[in-house]
């Protein structure tokens, strides 16, 4: 039954949601609403599961004296510190004077603005440097297709910025618009069609209980 029950649940819920998409009658809509509510509960529980797993694995590595132990300890301290700060603000555990002066989200906003935002923005900004490096190293007109690709890339890069029109007498943005609307648009529609078939196939197999890789089979 350890295998059969999850498969049965998957099939029933999958068919119910699929039916509600195609059928507007009241009972299917009500069932869909109920399943959506349950799905949100599961998503929220998945967060807790993720946190529990993170703590378990990190503590295991710390107690085993792993090379990354100091970083794991910092991560756990930040995780629980931020959680505690949020709980304190939500439940009013902080001194009233502090809340009056700084607002009831001050600690969380500080953590977000002063730590999280700079770190994430910095990592993302690496892309600008890496794309320049990759452009120098790898963008070669080795073949006809590569040359077409490079030309299209140059048109897009020039068309997206004001200096492109200045250098080309206004043609860059017009060429960009043509390329994006007609050539790219057509290609994207075809790609979406192909990708959707793959997703449809796997979805059908999961809903009908044929695909069981989510059970580690």
């Amino acid at each position: 039954m350890k295998r059969e029950i999850p498969i049965l649940l998957t099939v029933l819920c999958g068919l119910a949601v699929t039916w509600s998409f195609f059928s507007p009658v009241g009972v299917s809509s009500a069932m869909n609403a109920e399943l959506l509510d349950w799905a949100q509960v599961f998503f929220s529980v998945a967060f807790l599961l993720g946190i529990a797993n993170l703590v378990r694995i990190s503590l295991k590595q710390v107690t085993a004296g792993h090379a990354d132990s100091p970083y794991k300890l910092v991560m756990l301290a930040v995780l629980f510190g931020y959680l505690l700060a949020g709980l304190a603000e939500i439940h009013g555990w902080l001194p009233a004077a502090f809340t009056e002066e700084h607002g009831n989200k001050a600690l969380r906003n500080w953590g977000h603005a002063k730590i999280f935002v700079p770190l994430q923005a910095t990592m993302f900004s690496l892309l600008a440097f890496y794309i320049a490096s990759a452009a120098f190293r790898a963008f070669r007109a080795r073949s006809l297709e590569a040359t077409l690709l490079l030309t299209a890339g140059a048109v897009v890069m020039l068309g997206q910025v004001p200096i492109g029109d200045e250098l080309t007498g206004g043609w860059a943005s017009r060429a960009l618009a043509f390329l994006m609307v007609h050539v790219n648009g057509a290609g994207q529609k075809a790609i979406i069609m192909g990708a959707t078939l793959g997703v449809l196939a796997t979805g059908l197999r999961i809903v009908l209980g044929i695909e069981r890789s989510y059970l580690s089979e």
Partner: peptide
């Protein structure tokens, strides 16, 4: 796939 898309657009 690009040919398919071009046909669709046309």
């Amino acid at each position: 796939t690009v040919a398919l898309g071009l046909l669709l657009a046309l």
